[in-house]
Design a protein around this nucleic acid. Structure first.
Lengths: 343, 343
DNA sequence: AGTCGTGTCCAAAGCGCTTTGGAAATGATT
DNA sequence: AATCATTTCCAAAGCGCTTTGGACACGACT
């Protein structure tokens, strides 16, 4: 059943039926009523392609996310981010078209987006340092928003980012204020741009207080629980072990926690831990009333909301690129931090 | 730059240009060469809507996933599942259109899919017990595959499922064989269909050996680390505590592990733990050589591959619904299980 | 009676592609 | 030289919608 058939069955023109269905005023209320009923009872569903072709609007946005084929790992924040973006987009009638991009095949990059008209704009997630995909997106001449940014090149496009540098700077200061002097950094893969910024925040805070960094207390890897366990365990075995850990994700913090307990130490008393918390729905940091870890929190779901909102502004023309949004993480104090032990 | 312009600039007809670009044989190699070069240099990108309208194929599949608005939780396996499905689909030129469906608004359910032509088929994830969405999908008259199934109604549509009942039956037997008699079940939300099946497998194994179940040793909730910690902790405090835990997810198992260690017990010696492991990329169960937990493993990413493959078969007509795929989990033996302590 | 809105509807022209049913040119065969 | 198959190309008809530019009827106002 298409519009033509529906119009014929009603003895009306396609124009009138289309207008009746889409709420245009040039049609009498009685006719509109009649048309709507017929549409429902006949199970008429408009063809989105035809409509999109006629209107020029796809009513969809593309979401491109990297899949490093080598490591076969999927970004754990993805689910919550997409939930946030989807939430915002669906209230405005937009769909999400996923584009899983393997890093290496730059030729077929954005294949789905390569054919025109599928989406009205794009959101890019998790840029790497010096990510070339941004230039690619610019070349497509389509509105886009980046979740995160590329350090050496953060102008000329829209991005939304958490202030990673500031968050880790503050977290480090918090530990320093508690008297900690040997602070370890368990960072994410430094190929990711945000990890870069976090390290900078950490290092700046230390050098502001005239402290030197110990390379043995800095690790960087994919953010898994096992990594947290192994590297914390190793650092705690050093002759001069750290009294505090600054950690890049809750999962890694859980590993560090395990390593601490495993050595008969108590987190928050013998060793302090501050972690970043993306506030993933399936990985809560305890409860709001009783967090497990002291954390710099920035809900990634909200980031999804904001990116979507920004992109929609770009698409409907109410805003023009480039503009940016920077979010500040909030420092949540939990029982995982305490004064540096004195001995 | 559209096909018409491109054809005009080459002095050819649209027909010929279209055929040259799409690899039809009715065009000379020289012309094809010329056309392809012109297409690239002019930055021609075909309009997917127009193409889709003309061919009748959308070259996209819809992925509907529930978002229980109440709990605001996102299914943690989603990311890996979509990675698997996306992997398979992208090699065949298919895109993924996401549809985040809030449970309650059944009216706008599959809004994106409600307008015709956007997708050629759909994959549905994480069905609830007695999920009404399956009837809805049937009504759309479009091929679809369900990841999981609905217990009381698993005929008449395509599904792919891990044999949850069998896996948990075997895991329970494994613990029974080790001499455990008080075994606790930390299950997922029993509104989820798979949780139902897992409980059945667990209960069947117990009753086969003539053992009764203790309601105090059965918990069911969203699968978070905190839940694992809290309920394991509570059960271990019972006058007659369990000697083994059968757990529904790695995250919950980590919480249980924490509770065990927290009480000064040692996992694998004092208390055994078997968990299900979806093999999520960002949440590995140790390493392949050295798993942390004894686990029933079934990679959800592979499930994504299979669902996509099934759906593609349905779409291209090489297979016809309904048919099913049932996967068996493999039992991985790790250090988290050992003989029941005797005292 | 003539004019002017105003409300209601329609025919037809796109949107940019694929595909059908030829047509023209070329070379091979009689 | 005439016939036929082959190769190479094209005009035009969709696909199903939106939207432009009227047409027509009707009552109101001069």
């Amino acid at each position: 059943m298409n519009l033509k058939d529906l119009a014929a069955s009603l003895g009306l023109s396609q124009t009138t039926v289309s207008r009746a269905l889409n709420g245009y005023p040039e049609v009498s209320e009685a006719t509109r009523q009649r048309v709507q009923e017929a549409a429902i009872s006949s199970g008429y569903r408009p063809d989105s392609r035809a409509r999109s072709l006629a209107t020029g609007k796809a009513m969809a946005v593309g979401l491109v996310l990297p899949m490093t084929a080598r490591q076969e790992i999927v970004n754990p924040v993805f689910a919550d981010f997409v939930a946030g973006a989807g939430e915002t987009l669906s209230t405005r009638g937009f769909d999400i078209v996923l584009s899983l991009v393997k890093e290496e095949d730059q030729t077929t990059v954005y294949r789905s987006m390569l054919s025109k008209g599928r989406v009205d704009g794009m959101i890019m997630q998790a840029p790497l340092t010096g990510d070339s995909r941004i230039a690619l997106l610019k070349g497509l001449g389509m509105p886009f928003v980046v979740h995160g940014r590329v350090s050496d090149h953060d102008e000329g496009y829209c991005w939304m980012d958490m202030d990673n540098r500031h968050a880790f700077h503050d977290a480090t200061c918090h530990l320093l204020d508690l008297g900690h002097r040997r602070i370890a950094l368990l960072n994410g893969l430094e190929a990711m741009d945000f990890a870069h910024r976090r390290r900078d925040g950490f290092l700046d805070a230390l050098s502001e207080r005239g402290l030197k960094t110990d390379p043995a207390l800095m690790a960087s890897a994919m953010m898994t629980e096992s990594y947290g366990f192994a590297s914390a365990n190793q650092m705690l075995a050093l002759p001069n072990p750290p009294t505090a850990f600054l950690v890049s994700s809750l999962l890694v913090a859980m590993g560090a926690h395990r390593a601490i307990e495993n050595r008969g130490l108590k987190m928050g008393r013998d060793v302090s831990v501050v972690t970043h918390d993306d506030d993933l729905s399936y990985l809560p940091n305890g409860t709001p009333e009783a967090p497990i870890f002291t954390a710099t929190r920035s809900p990634v779901r909200q980031a999804g909301n904001i990116c979507a909102e920004m992109l929609l502004g770009l698409i409907d023309g109410s805003r023009t690129a480039p503009f940016h949004t920077k979010l500040q993480a909030s420092l949540i104090i939990g029982p995982s931090t305490g004064p540096a032990p004195t001995h």
